[in-house]
Every structure is written in structure tokens, then in C-alpha cells.
Design a protein around this nucleic acid. Structure first.
Lengths: 170, 170
DNA sequence: TTGATTGCAAAGCATTTGCATGCTA
DNA sequence: TAGCATGCAAATGCTTTGCAATCAA
């Protein structure tokens, strides 16, 4: 692995370029937030990222994290995702393949998957209704293997799911 | 069509039974809210439904509409749906086939569709990852036929989309 | 009569905005 | 120096909760 300074050079350059094109400015806060975002290979809420940033620089505020996540999204480095608990999460988007999510409603585990067959069927369906598809969102909710076992073994454990899915959508 | 009094008898009985089983009570507000919900074949937000109810009985409050929509959902008469604008919408669920949604990001039109092929592929994918699928949510976002034309004809019209999709999810 | 229900007001969340101050280009 | 960025506090939008008064069973 490259040294800390050389990591994520591509992503950082994409960000710089986006900032310059838009007539914005580079700041220490934005650099720090981007760096921590890139170092964390998870689905992060703004709140999650705020605390990670806070550990390294406690002067950075919530607002800046929110605004920077939007900026990262605009720059194509992040993608906003929702799992149904009312918050927005963000995941890496630069050089990452498109995928959908499968979420365990018990422990909150999120699995990324991709099905070319489903993708192409979505195109077909959209065309049937005269739509030009621009994006889609698909979540599969269920129990992961581990939680299926836990459920059959015993009833309630005290564990708190990370993502509490309040409702089922379409 | 049956007379107003005889309409939706099945739905109303389902509601009565749910209320009795749960040890709850029938009230004029709940009857009115259910009635208006059933008469409206659309995706309604709590706010939408509140105003429709308000027209017929202005003494009914927001809170009661929220609580009654939850009750209808518990009773299996309604289903909560989210389109990505931060609000919850509700649609008829009793004796309605499962379906997914296609949403026009320009005018907010919502089309319901069902694809058995996609459904079965979802089962397959879930099984591949050891998940037991319980629900899923799928939204296709794009431009409907009409808005594609409008877009090519001219640029901006003053029309306000009913659903403003703020973010793209998975 | 008893306890569920109602509606108001207030509280909760996640997110956004106004604004004075600070800092980059 | 100009004007974008920051961070605080306040505002927002949707939803939930506390509570006293009301009403169904």
C-alpha cells in the first residue's frame, strides 16, 4: 500500500478539480473530511462521519460535514444512499461499480450486490411504460444467515441493530 | 357501484376486527379517515390526507391522521411507501397485488408495475447471499413519456413537480 | 366507570439556513 | 482585498410524545 500521503491521489485530484471548476476553495476542513471519508470503507451517515472527524479535529462542525458530503456527491466521489431509517448514508462512488443493497433487518448488516439480469429487466420495464430510466433504487430486506440461526436458537438478545428499518417501501 | 354506505364493506370490517382484537375503540374520526382514505385512489401523504379530512371535519387534528394511518397499516389496509422526498406516503394494501414504483423525476407521476421475473431474481440473489428475503423495495426513477417530449420542446415550464426527488439511493 | 382517544402544544430528529467572523486565492 | 467557507444558533419539515380533557364500551 502506498504511504498515507500518496493514498487516494486520484480521488483527491478529482475533488480539487471539481472545486476549481466550481470556483470554490480548498480548505483544511474539506481535506480532512475527504481523507477520513476515503479511509472508511463503510456506509457512513453524516453523524458517523462527524464523530470520526471530531476525533481528529474537534473544531469542525456538523454543518461543514453535511456541506462537504454534498460537495463530495457533486464531485462524484460519494453517493447518497438511504436504508429506510430516515437518515442519509454515503458510500464511495469513484471507480466503484454500481450495485444495490441487501439489508438484514435484525443486525443491520448491509451487503452490496449486483445482478445484471435485474438491471436489464429494469430497462425493459421502464421502456414498456415509456419511461427513460435515469436511476433506480433497490433494497432487499431480510434476515442474514447468522440472524436466521440466532432466531431459531433463542428469542431476544440485547443487541441493538445499527439500522432500524421502520417501514417497508414499494 | 354500490351506495356510499355499502362501499368498502370488506375493508371496514377488516378495520373493525383489527380494532376489536387489539382492544381498541371505534371512533368517528377513525371512520372518517378510513373512509376518505379508501375513497382516494392515490398515494397520499399524511398531510394530503389531513387536508382531505379537514374539508369534511375541520376539528380533526394532524396527530389523529398520523396515528390512524399507522393503525390502517397495522390492520393491513394501508402500506407505507417512500419516494425519496423525505415524506411517507400511503397506498391501498387490502386485496391489492404487490407492485413496485416508477417515478417521473420531472412531474412526480408514479406508475405502479410488477415484474415476476425481477421478483424471482430477487429471491435468487437473496439466496446466493444466505439471506431469507422478507420484503423489498424498488424504485425506478426516470422521465415519463410526456416529460421527455416537454424537455425536448422547450426548457423550463413553471410547473412544480409533486414529488421532488432529492437523492438517488442504492 | 374505566381506560382508550383526541388535539393541542411541545419535543425529537435529521437537515438546512442566516449571519458574523475567518480565511483562501 | 473580495468573497467563499466556517460554525454557531436558529429555523425547518416531518413525525412523535406528553398531557388534560373527552368519549366509547
Amino acid at each position: 500500500m502506498a504511504s498515507k500521503e500518496k493514498e487516494f491521489q486520484n480521488e483527491k485530484q478529482v475533488f480539487s478539480e471539481h472545486i476549481q471548476k466550481a470556483g470554490l476553495r480548498n480548505t483544511a476542513q474539506r481535506e480532512l473530511i475527504l481523507d477520513i471519508f476515503l479511509r472508511t470503507e463503510e456506509h457512513l451517515s453524516s453523524e458517523d462521519l462527524y464523530w470520526l472527524v471530531h476525533k481528529e479535529d474537534s473544531s469542525v462542525g456538523h454543518t461543514t460535514v453535511y456541506r462537504t458530503l454534498k460537495l463530495l456527491t457533486d464531485a462524484g466521489l460519494a453517493r447518497e444512499v438511504r436504508f429506510g431509517d430516515g437518515k442519509s448514508y454515503y458510500e464511495h462512488h469513484y471507480n466503484h461499480e454500481h450495485h444495490d443493497h441487501m439489508i438484514c433487518t435484525e443486525c443491520g448488516k448491509v451487503v452490496e450486490f449486483f445482478s445484471p439480469e435485474i438491471e436489464s429487466l429494469q430497462e425493459t420495464v421502464a421502456a414498456e411504460y415509456g419511461f427513460r430510466l435515469t436511476h433506480h433504487s433497490m433494497r432487499i430486506l431480510g434476515l442474514c444467515g447468522i440472524c436466521q440461526k440466532k432466531d431459531s436458537e433463542s428469542a431476544a438478545s440485547g443487541a441493538q441493530p445499527r439500522v432500524r428499518v421502520k417501514s417497508v417501501f414499494s
